[in-house]
């Protein structure tokens, strides 16, 4: 399926996005984690992002600021905190109480249900796909030992959620999944045969909702501006 068509760099982006999610203590891979991974890649697309001020450090700062660290992040991440403050509800106070009184496991499960509740079936398909890939890779491994590119160095960052990082399979949020699906279309309209980092970046920047536009606005840029810059870079390169 899709993962098979990804270039090595693009695979690294997906793998790093997952590592970022784990490190920040959430049980889902969101568009914000994809952006974080993209900003760190050593590719023209990553270069454009960093030139426009979208560095991994600044993205991470925004991700942590908007959704916090840890299991309950997803429960409170996208709520309108100012509107709630207007009717006397301090979201941070609510969150602090809930996090203090609820078992971590319940928080994590509810957080995951909020993000991925209706996408169980998709998660299951992905799990099957991963198992199949693992087997395939194991089979291939015997033929050609140690391919350095298949295991990129782990993603790093400043923040780490307290407690053990979430283990097991982390599903993509519906938004992040759509970004990956639409990246296929980005490649198709450009008549590219490979599925590269630039296609994921363009697809991510074309997404209207989700956490990415507010992050970019906070970094004094916009999805449209970055999209144009990336298209430009690749056009002049080819």
């Amino acid at each position: 399926m899709m993962f098979e068509r990804l270039s090595a760099d693009a695979r690294t982006v997906v793998i790093h996005a997952q590592q970022h999610a784990r490190r920040l203590g959430v049980r889902y891979i969101g568009c914000d984690h994809l952006l974080l991974a993209l900003a760190a890649t050593d590719t023209p697309a990553g270069g454009v992002l960093r030139e426009q001020g979208v560095t991994p450090e600044r993205v991470e700062e925004q991700v942590v600021r908007s959704s916090g660290l840890g299991a309950a992040a997803a429960l409170f991440a996208d709520l309108d905190r100012d509107a709630l403050a207007g009717i006397g509800i301090d979201l941070d106070a609510v969150r602090a109480r809930i996090e203090a009184s609820m078992p971590l496991e319940s928080l994590a499960r509810a957080g995951q249900a909020v993000q991925c509740g209706s996408h169980r079936a998709g998660a299951h398909r992905l799990r099957l796909l991963r198992r199949w890939r693992r087997r395939r890779r194991a089979g291939r491994g015997r033929a050609e030992p140690t391919d350095a590119r298949t295991t990129p160095p782990p993603a790093t960052g400043r923040y780490r959620a307290p407690g053990p990082p979430p283990d097991g399979h982390l599903p993509f949020t519906p938004g992040a999944k759509r970004v990956l699906e639409m990246s296929v279309r980005e490649a198709a309209v450009r008549h590219d045969r490979h599925l590269g980092v630039e296609h994921i970046a363009l697809s991510l920047l074309a997404t209207a909702g989700g956490p990415v536009p507010p992050i970019l606005n906070a970094l004094a840029t916009s999805p449209a501006q970055l999209r144009a810059a990336i298209v430009d870079r690749y056009r002049s390169a080819s």
Partner: peptide, 9 residues
């Protein structure tokens, strides 16, 4: 907006 946020919460 406050009502909507409260409902989601």
């Amino acid at each position: 907006r406050a009502v909507a946020a409260l409902r989601t919460l």
